[in-house]
C-alpha cells in the first residue's frame, strides 16, 4: 500500500513536471545589440521597440502556448495537424496563445493584429505563412497571413474559417478551435487560389491586384470591325444596284393622303423598381506591419 502510494505520488509529480515543461515555450532573449531578426528585416528606429517586445522563438516548434491554454495531448495533436498542413502546402503555420499583449495600436491595426504580424516577421518563419493568435488579454483571436497565404486566403475564406472556430472559442475549447482553423485553411488550400484573387500577385512581398487584358473581346471587336469595314469597301466597288422603289418619280403636287384614322384603343403602364447596386470588390484586404511587409487576415472577439 505504501509502495503504491509512493509510486502514485511519483507518477503525479512526474506528470506535473512534464506539463510544466511543455507549457513554458522556449524563448531567446533579444538585446539592443543583438535583435536576432531574420536578415531580410531592415532595422529602423521606428520598428526597434516592436522587435524588442516580440518574443524570439524556435521556428520549428509551431505551437507557442504562452497563455497555457492547451494540454500536452492537445499540443501534440495540434503540432501534428500543423505538420500535415506544412507538408501539404509548403507554407508555414504557427499557433500562438498569449495572456498579456505588450503591443499597442499601430498604423490602423489593433494590438492583436500587430502581435500576430510581428510574431511572424521577427522570427524565422517562412515568408509564406499563417499565424493564428489567441489574445487572452483582449479576448480576441486572429488569423494573420503573409506572402502567398494572403493570395490563398481572401477575406471570405478567412471569414468562414473564423465562423467555424467562433463557437469553440466562446466555449473555451481553444485547442479544438485551433485545430479546426488549421484544417479549414488546409482544405481551402486544396481548392486553389480563390476566384477573387485570380489576378492578384505578390510584388516584393506586397499584395497587388491587376486587371487582365481582355484579349478575347479585343480580338472579337477587331474582327467584327474589320469585317464590317471591309464589307462596306467591297460594296462600294459594286455600283450596280437595282432600284426597288420609284421615289424619284413621285409628283408631290398630285399626292394626297386623305384618309387618316388614329383610333385610341387602350393604354397600359408598367413599372420596374430601380435597383440600387452596391459594389463588392472581393479579394484580400491587407495592411502593412511595423517591418514594412504586407499581411492579410482577420479576427474576432470571443
Amino acid at each position: 500500500m505504501k509502495n503504491k502510494l509512493i509510486i502514485f505520488s511519483l507518477l503525479f509529480l512526474f506528470t506535473l513536471n512534464i506539463t510544466n515543461v511543455s507549457a513554458s515555450t522556449n524563448t531567446f532573449p533579444r538585446t539592443e545589440s543583438d535583435l536576432q531578426v531574420p536578415s531580410n528585416i531592415l532595422i529602423t528606429e521606428e520598428n526597434k521597440p516592436f522587435i524588442l517586445n516580440t518574443p524570439k522563438v524556435d521556428a520549428r516548434e509551431k505551437v507557442y502556448d504562452f497563455a497555457d491554454l492547451f494540454t500536452d495531448v492537445e499540443e501534440e495533436e495540434l503540432y501534428n495537424e500543423i505538420l500535415s498542413y506544412i507538408k501539404e502546402t509548403s507554407m508555414d503555420f504557427a499557433v500562438v496563445t498569449i495572456s498579456e499583449n505588450p503591443k499597442s495600436y499601430f498604423n490602423g491595426s489593433d494590438s492583436t493584429t500587430v502581435y500576430a504580424d510581428d510574431f511572424h516577421d521577427y522570427n524565422d518563419f517562412k515568408p509564406d505563412a499563417v499565424v493564428f493568435l489567441i489574445d487572452m488579454e483582449n479576448r480576441k483571436f486572429y488569423i494573420s497571413t503573409s506572402g502567398k497565404a494572403i493570395i490563398m486566403y481572401d477575406d471570405s475564406r478567412i471569414d468562414s474559417t473564423l465562423d467555424i472556430a467562433e463557437f469553440d472559442m466562446k466555449n473555451n475549447a481553444y485547442a479544438k478551435a485551433s485545430k479546426k482553423i488549421v484544417k479549414s485553411l488546409k482544405n481551402y488550400y486544396k481548392e486553389g487560389i480563390p476566384r477573387s484573387n485570380r489576378n492578384c500577385e505578390l510584388e516584393d512581398g506586397k499584395y497587388k491586384c491587376y486587371k487582365k487584358v481582355p484579349i478575347v473581346p479585343i480580338a472579337l471587336v477587331s474582327l467584327i470591325l474589320v469585317i464590317t469595314i471591309w464589307l462596306c469597301i467591297a460594296s462600294s466597288y459594286k455600283k450596280i444596284k437595282a432600284k426597288t422603289n420609284a421615289a424619284d418619280y413621285v409628283i408631290k403636287k398630285k399626292t394626297n393622303i386623305n384618309r387618316r384614322i388614329d383610333l385610341f384603343l387602350t393604354s397600359n403602364t408598367s413599372r420596374i423598381r430601380i435597383e440600387t447596386t452596391t459594389s463588392s470588390s472581393g479579394g484580400s484586404s491587407t495592411h502593412s506591419s511595423s517591418s514594412g511587409s504586407s499581411h492579410g487576415g482577420g479576427g474576432r472577439s470571443f
Binding site: 384614322i261 388614329d262 383610333l263 384603343l265 387602350t266 393604354s267 403602364t269
Partner: peptide, 15 residues
C-alpha cells in the same frame, strides 16, 4: 413605361 395602343389607317392617292 406607358404604352398607348392605337388602331391606325392611312390612305390616299399618289401620282
Amino acid at each position: 413605361t406607358k404604352t398607348d395602343h392605337y388602331k391606325v389607317e392611312r390612305g390616299g392617292s399618289i401620282t
